[in-house]
Design a protein around this nucleic acid. Sequence first.
DNA 1: CATGAATGAGTATTCATTCAT
DNA 2: CATGAATGAATACTCATTCAT
Lengths: 218, 218, 218, 218
Amino acid sequence: MTPNNIFNEILSFQSVKLTMKQERIVQAAIQLFAEKGYSNTSTAEIAKVAEASEASIFKKYGSKEKLLLSIIVPSLKEFFPTMADEVIGPISEANSTFEGFLAAFLKNRSEMVIANKEIFQVIVKELIYKEDLKNELTPYIFEAAASRLARVIDLYKERGELIDIPTHKILKSLLTFIGGFFTSHFVLLNNESVAEEVIEDAVRFIMHGIGIKTTSMN
Amino acid sequence: MTPNNIFNEILSFQSVKLTMKQERIVQAAIQLFAEKGYSNTSTAEIAKVAEASEASIFKKYGSKEKLLLSIIVPSLKEFFPTMADEVIGPISEANSTFEGFLAAFLKNRSEMVIANKEIFQVIVKELIYKEDLKNELTPYIFEAAASRLARVIDLYKERGELIDIPTHKILKSLLTFIGGFFTSHFVLLNNESVAEEVIEDAVRFIMHGIGIKTTSMN
Amino acid sequence: MTPNNIFNEILSFQSVKLTMKQERIVQAAIQLFAEKGYSNTSTAEIAKVAEASEASIFKKYGSKEKLLLSIIVPSLKEFFPTMADEVIGPISEANSTFEGFLAAFLKNRSEMVIANKEIFQVIVKELIYKEDLKNELTPYIFEAAASRLARVIDLYKERGELIDIPTHKILKSLLTFIGGFFTSHFVLLNNESVAEEVIEDAVRFIMHGIGIKTTSMN
Amino acid sequence: MTPNNIFNEILSFQSVKLTMKQERIVQAAIQLFAEKGYSNTSTAEIAKVAEASEASIFKKYGSKEKLLLSIIVPSLKEFFPTMADEVIGPISEANSTFEGFLAAFLKNRSEMVIANKEIFQVIVKELIYKEDLKNELTPYIFEAAASRLARVIDLYKERGELIDIPTHKILKSLLTFIGGFFTSHFVLLNNESVAEEVIEDAVRFIMHGIGIKTTSMN
DNA sequence: CATGAATGAGTATTCATTCAT
DNA sequence: CATGAATGAATACTCATTCAT
């Protein structure tokens, strides 16, 4: 079973309409995986919370692991592409500055994550462990998110809004900070929302850091 | 059982000299917990890798959880204080700029983490799950690290090297980025080292961000 | 968890129809507990004798202890009440003497115990240890058995068949002897039956003791 | 290893003077066995209560079972013989009636048991399970206690104080009641003492039962 | 004499999974 | 589609016992 087979098999789950019981199973699994982690959640517990039988889980998903993947994979598939369409689209509205873009981007993605916080937590918590899954998804994520962001960065670099260092360096710092931002807010602190001010602070940090600007600096 | 009881009980483990077998058990546990996570590692597996009996694990540590804590807790107790002494000490060397401080700090802490990478990974991976432990350690960590950093920030703010916004905001951005930095390098990417250049990039990002400086900016 | 909770939870086991495997598990448990005692019987052994899996035991009964209680509690709940209905009922047949009652009582109860000898042995052997269970059951037993017997004693005292000392003293001596009788016959000696003559001897002892009657005695 | 070998081996323990630690081990074992039963007491627990090492237990006693026997066997060896010497001796004082004898006997044995209540409880609780031990001890007990009692019964029968039925029947009823008496008082109820009145009641029951005497009775 | 260290063989219990209905 | 019944394999943990010091 090559990665893509699993991938496609998993994706087939969402194409079919779920029955009520199946829906409850997925919801229970998301909740429990987010709260206690995949390994610390038993199928018996999922069945109990879902008020379904354990057999129903295996009937539909085949294994506990595929149930996990059926939660993670479609979400990622949704998460990153919509990023491209909903967020990186508006860039073309030329009047927008990079600061404006960043603020809109952080706000939009934060709302997205908050709306699906438990799934986000499941993804973060499990990706740490599942070396396989990580390797499988990395190129996909990169294509869907990082490379598009790189293009945006290039665009604004041309406009003279961003410093003239290699794009991959800018991207790396950006992703490091954004990763820390989302993880600390929505996994560690489990926040329900982010204040406007918090986003402003983040944008200012990303744009100007914490040092005093001196005209003489390169 | 108050936090401090557990804390002290755990710390008592390291005060006594470990036998060879006990040492092997701890090493095996660190390795396996780092690799596969606590929940996915069985005591049978630890015993096998350590070439000891499971009974020996429980004789010494009482439970799998206490074995985990006996790895995590003393390391944290060591990690943050030495940070104060070894890193924040040199600050007083007045000629040092904040940039210099940052670079030295990141370099020193990176070396420290690399030297104990597996333990670092165990800590990061498990802290996500253990709400209790997180709550227990947070104030401790804060006192040992965050509050001292805040003082350093204040110092350099007075010297006019840092922007004049509330210290806690500076601290928050700083910790968000540093957290992302360590996690991505040593947990996600499992790096064995950090190039000088990478640290320089990180310092520049922290100090000046990615935007073009304009004299007119606040 | 109040006594009645456990009580009722346990009783719920028998209300549901048992599957064949479950029936075999209970039978195996009764046999082994009676023979070697609860503590000296492992769930592995029960499973083996029952030709079922250990998992099946826990699926149905949750714990070894609840399996024990599911054997003990319903039996007691059955044992004492039927005593009232089947044995103490016939008392009303006015022509019956107390000696007749005693003989019938001992015979009936002996048959009952013989028919459930293993369960009786389990109960006696475990009640010695389980302080909790003992305290829980004592009032129940008292109400179902002792207090009814007391009423019978009162009745025959009124009829002039029994000596005129406080009923509780009569009852105590009676229960001491009857307890010794059942325990020695069915637990210590593990008898399969009691001869008619043995019951006659017991009745005579209870009624007249071993001393020579003298008219002058009080 | 025939019964007598074990027997003698066990008895050899008491001939040698015990060290302080060994004494503590025996005391801890008696206490724990009496409280929770042999099977539910671990050697680790005994060692802890005795403030000794587990190894010390095995050094002296070889096995947990032999530790148990070293408690039970010497006590029995002491219990029954002293019964002969201290209690059945006074019989020869001719003026004593059987009632007097019984009262003195019950009082003396009760005091004896109370003074060694925990050991008595251990013996009763374990004899139920240990078929082997039971069979080993039965003839011994019979010789030391039952047969002597039979002689006393014969004596008083000749004096016309006891009813003229086969001695073994008298003995059986007597032992059934006395067994019930000691077990209920000192194992089930865990009494610390027996009131004078309680013994009087028991004696009266044994001698005259609970029926009204009629001159016409045989 | 006493013990700390070590362990093989259990112990109760849990788990993900299968299958007949 | 849904589930109750059943389980082999594992799981964390305990036990009585041995041995070198």
